[in-house]
Design a protein around this nucleic acid. Structure first.
Lengths: 217, 217
DNA sequence: TAGATTGTTAATCGATTAACAATC
DNA sequence: TAGATTGTTAATCGATTAACAATC
């Protein structure tokens, strides 16, 4: 896997998209595809697709194209989806609940093994077969069970304190839905942010910019 | 606002981050900041910050820096947050509910004016003061009320049909949480995607890649 | 005025696209 | 074999960084 080193961020961000499209092609029963055909469907250039894939190896066959199924599996393997990282969810509010219910963690290399909240009313309830635990029991849980990833679905105000606690418990990987910037405090962690507010603001910008453009015409 | 034309995508994506950080500085009572100080806090280079801001105008004062509050307001205005675009939510499942409850639409240039679901059990329930309507009443609603944006929180399978309907009703702006690629069918729409699955896979990749790297040492 | 910091131009870096030889 | 399409190198394009004159 040495070859996966130093892959640029734009390439990495395109990988899930390839994976998604190849999955759809498989569902449609398509077994073979050329970079040109993929290009038409996905909106990347054929050149870029070939460049991207060649970061990881030679998956195609000259004069033929790519086997959809084997490329799908290769990309899944590159993404590490055949792993099973233990994840805990912090915050069982609307968002946390939605994330727990909505995501197929197993298909994405994870397993949800615990849900925590500090709201005593939520403690004891069940979400997707998991009992919501009291946040006070987090230390005990992490000592007993190896936890790789923390999913943060909590308010910004609560984030710094809990982030510190999680770090002290040895957790280094985060899926962060809170608006707190985790990487401020520690630089040896890996954080994937889902900033819904940012996304909504970008939509607002695009709408506003387009409306202004039309005004000019 | 002509000057806001043709701003590159990387710049646009950084704008919400500036906005967020400036908001925090304001809360801390900081009134003045230099590009250098912002650079230290945000992890962008000072040069990039100055370049970014100069896409939109001259907000600083040479020898002094930037006024936090006026820069915050300027960026809010650039983003169009002082607008009030009418938005409807399609899909009142866990995710839709979380989005409705969790987001401060008003602060982000939007107003949530309707929630729709095809599940008769959900119809009539209340989310954030809004009654969940039957999806069959969508046409009527859109004829009566100007709707700018549709927020899609529905399963991939239902997406194509509903996307078609929304398009035929004249809706051109979408905040898309579904795994369906809206821009396939129409190229005159603006879509901001939130692909939670993609985000989770990217996290999986980063964890896997780092674990491999450590193995080598 | 002197020091600081912007706005802006020029240089560098990296990512995307084009081209083509290798080869199935 | 001839046609097609990859893998890969070279050219282009765009974004980031560095430098510095303008100026508060």
């Amino acid at each position: 896997m040495n070859k996966y080193n130093n892959i640029s961020s734009p390439v990495i961000k395109r990988l899930p998209r390839y994976y998604r499209f190849l999955g759809e092609l498989m569902e449609k029963g398509i077994t073979k595809i050329s970079s040109r055909e993929l290009s038409d469907k996905m909106g990347f250039t054929a050149s870029q697709i070939r460049q991207d894939l060649n970061c990881f190896g030679e998956f195609g066959q000259q004069g033929y194209g790519y086997s959809v199924e084997s490329l799908y599996n290769e990309i899944g393997h590159i993404l590490g989806l055949d792993n099973c990282y233990n994840a805990i969810l912090i915050g069982a509010g609307n968002l946390g609940k939605a994330v727990a219910m909505h995501m197929s963690f197993e298909k994405r290399g994870f397993r949800l093994i615990g849900i925590f909240d500090n709201d005593k009313e939520k403690v004891g309830t069940n979400i997707k077969g998991l009992r919501v635990s009291d946040l006070d029991d987090l230390d005990k849980f992490c000592f007993e069970t190896k936890t790789d990833v923390a999913i943060l679905c909590l308010p910004k105000t609560a984030a710094p304190e809990i982030a510190d606690k999680l770090y002290s418990l040895g957790i280094r990987y985060y899926w962060n839905f809170s608006h707190y910037d985790l990487s401020i405090d520690h630089d040896d962690i890996i954080v994937e942010n889902v900033h819904l507010n940012d996304s909504l603001m970008i939509l607002c910008y695009r709408i506003s910019a387009e409306k202004e453009k039309n005004k000019d015409i």
